[in-house]
């Protein structure tokens, strides 16, 4: 083969290298749009309208170019977020509602969109309307990653606003919600996660005695799911919240005796020394 032929093959390979995948091009466009959006997130009040329009245009290009991809969903979310940080809540909600997602197949994304709408209400200090959105996530997408944390998020809101009745009510709702999910799961890990969430809800609500009871149940029921961590948590609650150092010592000694290979043994020994 002549040198010329080798050269032509080389040129052909070089020409092929312009073949960036659509996905890669979209990723680059998305990175550039996010980069421009960062400046707005940092200083939303000082952002001139033309700058916002420029970034929106970048996202709109992605929406037009890759309409049925995850990039378009991400771009649509980002447009909504931009209005949210600028304080235009109504426009933000209308952008979130434009999200074109098949909720049967992508429940997590739909839950995220509804959560974003809820947040826009929260930022506007319309908690009751935000709560309607959050509850719709709990009922429509019970096993989405968002819905598992939402009951605790709601408890925290009432804690922040120092609404004791609200804390108790939302905690009870969380407990019954997680219990209802437990009835639908069959896997041991699923049960363990839900029991842990029940314990967390009680801790968030400050119902310490109930929390240690639930933690004790998880130690007995799920011996393969890190019971040493539950025992450590119990010890902390006994010491700091229930002011019962004897019970705290008991829990720490259980870690050392029953789980001598646990990563928490050193911590447990140090804690014991302080009691």
């Amino acid at each position: 083969m002549k040198v010329r032929n080798y050269f032509l093959i080389f040129l052909f390979v070089v020409a092929l290298c312009g073949c960036e995948s659509r996905e890669f091009k979209a990723e680059r466009q998305m990175w550039r749009a996010h980069k421009r959006a960062q400046a707005i997130y940092k200083n939303p009040k000082g952002t001139p309208p033309f700058q916002l329009a420029q970034v929106q245009k970048e996202y709109q290009k992605i929406l037009d170019k890759y309409p049925k991809s995850l990039f378009s969903i991400q771009a649509q979310f980002s447009i909504g977020h931009l209005y949210l940080v600028m304080g235009d809540f109504e426009r933000a909600r209308s952008e979130y509602k434009k999200l074109n997602v098949d909720c049967d197949k992508r429940g997590n994304l739909c839950a995220e969109a509804i959560f974003a709408i809820g947040q826009s209400y929260e930022l506007e200090e319309k908690w009751s309307q935000a709560l309607i959105q959050y509850k719709s996530i709990l009922s429509s997408f019970p096993f989405s990653s968002k819905s598992l944390d939402l009951p605790i998020y709601i408890i925290r809101h009432y804690q922040r606003t120092k609404d004791a009745a609200g804390v108790n009510r939302s905690c009870d709702e969380a407990l019954s919600y997680y219990a209802s999910l437990k009835s639908k799961t069959k896997a041991e890990k699923g049960d363990y996660i839900l029991d842990s969430l029940i314990a967390r809800s009680l801790i968030e609500a400050g119902r310490w005695q109930e929390a240690v009871d639930v933690l004790e149940k998880t130690v007995i029921r799920y011996p393969n799911m890190g019971p040493d961590e539950a025992l450590m948590l119990k010890a902390v609650i006994y010491k700091n919240k229930l002011k019962d150092s004897a019970k705290a010592r008991e829990e720490l000694q259980r870690i050392l005796k029953d789980y001598p290979k646990s990563k928490l043994t050193k911590q447990a020994q140090a804690f014991l020394g302080k009691l």
Binding site: L16, C17, C19, E20, S21, F24
Partner: peptide
């Protein structure tokens, strides 16, 4: 140049 194009066809 080849390595920078490693995610793309044909590399």
């Amino acid at each position: 140049w080849v390595l920078a194009n490693s995610p793309h066809f044909p590399f």
